[in-house]
Design a binder for these strands. Structure first.
Lengths: 121, 121
DNA sequence: GCCTATAGTATCCAAAACGATACCGTGCCT
DNA sequence: AGGCACGGTATCGTTTTGGATACTATAGGC
């Protein structure tokens, strides 16, 4: 999505849907969160799992996820740098959504594009 | 979201999540689909339910939903014009996602913004 | 020395998304 | 006659999103 995120939630049935959507609005956010469900990961681990994302974009979206309280970021004072990303309880509460997305995708992915295996590089 | 929709699905666990996301990527799409779960609606009915959307944007997103096969559009040859929008079987298959989004939003909406009641106009 | 990994920052750019605003033809109601 | 509803179209503009590319300091391995 783009432009303004949903920021004003009206008291109709749609508004809770908008609230949830507004948090995962970002091209790679759901995918990142999905991977973090399995446990803590470091920056380049995430980057390798999420095919296609540029490092600048990944940084931005991890920052937004952290700002929204969906993940936590732990920096170890060492060289080379070590940073760990972990899904937060709030982020974990999105699990039903993420799992539904994956289940749907698994059952319907053949409708759009063809899975490719070139990101194993 | 914006820019390129997810269009190439790699064979890793994220790609099915991407596939699902790519279909509901649009500021108002989930909300529209959510409302259509309850049954067929006409254009201005949807417009009244979805607070904040401009009529131009609603038209665009309904078109995209139709193009993706998530809803169907039926035009009655009469004046004034009558058009009915109905969720399709493919769209209906997104119900678990939409319901998860609403459940999460219901439980967390207090974290962001305050519900307002000014769209009842 | 060079290459790689780490986790970024910096800068610029292009594309897309959405909003704002005005307008349309017909019929119905007042 | 005027206003309103219907379901849009048309045009322009702004903002945002994400990508492309280059660069960073340190350490370890070869």
């Amino acid at each position: 999505m783009a432009k303004a995120r949903h920021s004003r939630f009206d008291c109709n049935p749609g508004c809770s849907v908008e609230a949830a959507i507004s948090l995962i609005d970002g091209k790679w956010k759901c995918v990142v969160l999905f991977h973090l469900l399995d446990g803590t990961m470091r920056f380049n681990e995430i980057r390798r799992e999420v095919a296609g994302v540029t490092q600048r974009t990944l940084t931005n979206q991890l920052r937004e996820l952290e700002d929204d309280g969906l993940i936590t970021r732990k920096v170890y004072a060492q060289v080379p740098p070590k940073v760990e990303y972990t899904i937060s309880p709030l982020g974990r509460s999105l699990e039903p959504i993420l799992v539904s997305l994956k289940a749907w995708g698994d059952g319907n992915i053949g409708r759009f594009g063809k899975p490719v295996v070139e990101n194993a590089a």
